[in-house]
Computed example of a mutant assay.
Amino acid sequence: MDIGDIPLFSMLRGRLSYLSERQKLIAQNVANSDTPGFRPKDLKQFAYNAPARAPAGGLRPAGVQAVTQPGHMVSSSASSAASRGFQETKSEVIETTLDGNAVSLEEEMLKMSEARMSYDAAIGFYQKSMNLLRMAARPPGR
């Protein structure tokens, strides 16, 4: 069994991927804080959509193709949230300089610290969940 088949770990992988991408965008915003006309970007809020799975009876939901060979491609409707690209949005503009740059370093640093705290929390949750799986897999009495 692959650990990615467990919905909790699939969701955590998607969340960590989202936070990593968000940190990259925030770093780009900070790097372009002196670029004339630059508008800051951010990602839409992370939302986990569980991958479509075949029920125990073998029937699939309408529109979901079967993957019968390892080389088959998975349709976008059946792929996990981590494998899809995240959607960029324009950040809310608080102030704009005379050259048209709308990056606020204070706002970007707040976003970065928020993303870092969320990333640390997700990593901690991932580690605790792995420890629970290891404990469950140990033979009794150890």
Score class of each variant (00 low, 15 high):
P61R: 12
S79Y: 05
K111Y: 03
D34G: 11
T35M: 10
E107C: 01
P55H: 07
G57R: 02
V93N: 03
A78Q: 15
Q87H: 07
Q87N: 06
N49H: 10
S118V: 11
S79G: 14
S129P: 03
M117T: 11
I94E: 09
A82P: 07
S75H: 13
L105P: 04
R53T: 14
A47P: 03
V74Q: 06
N29V: 08
L105G: 05
P51D: 08
N101R: 01
D99L: 00
P70S: 05
A62Y: 02
I94G: 11
R116I: 08
V93R: 00
R84T: 11
A31I: 11
G71Q: 09
M73K: 14
P36N: 08
F86V: 07
V103F: 02
T96W: 02
H72C: 08
H72A: 14
D99C: 04
T89G: 00
V74K: 02
V30S: 02
S79T: 15
P70Y: 05
L98S: 10
F86Q: 12
I94H: 06
T35P: 09
Q69V: 07
S33R: 01
Y48W: 01
R53N: 05
P70R: 02
M112R: 06
Q28P: 01
G63M: 08
P70E: 04
Q127N: 08
V67E: 06
G37M: 07
S33A: 10
G71I: 04
E88F: 00
D42S: 04
S77E: 10
G85A: 12
F38H: 10
F125Y: 03
A47F: 01
N32Y: 01
V30N: 02
S75Y: 04
F38V: 10
K111W: 04
Q65D: 13
A54S: 15
R60W: 06
Y48T: 01
A47M: 04
A54W: 07
L110S: 10
Q127T: 13
N101E: 00
K41L: 15
Q69E: 14
Y48I: 01
S75R: 14
A54L: 14
V67T: 11
L59N: 13
I94K: 08
S104I: 00
A52S: 01
D99T: 05
E92I: 13
Q45D: 12
K41F: 03
R84F: 08
R84K: 14
Q65S: 15
S75N: 15
K44Y: 00
E106H: 04
G124D: 07
S76I: 13
T97E: 04
S80C: 15
G100W: 01
A102C: 03
Y126H: 08
N32C: 12
P70G: 05
T68C: 03
E95L: 07
A66G: 06
G63I: 06
Q45H: 01
A81Q: 13
V74E: 04
A50M: 11
H72M: 14
R116D: 12
S113D: 07
A66F: 09
K128D: 09
M117N: 11
D120C: 09
S129Y: 02
L98A: 13
L59I: 07
A82T: 11
A66Q: 14
S104D: 05
A78N: 14
R116N: 15
Q69A: 14
D99P: 02
P36H: 09
V93W: 05
A54V: 15
Y119T: 06
R116Y: 09
M112E: 05
F125I: 06
A31Y: 13
A82Y: 00
S113K: 09
E92M: 13
F86H: 09
G71W: 03
S79W: 04
I94F: 00
A115T: 00
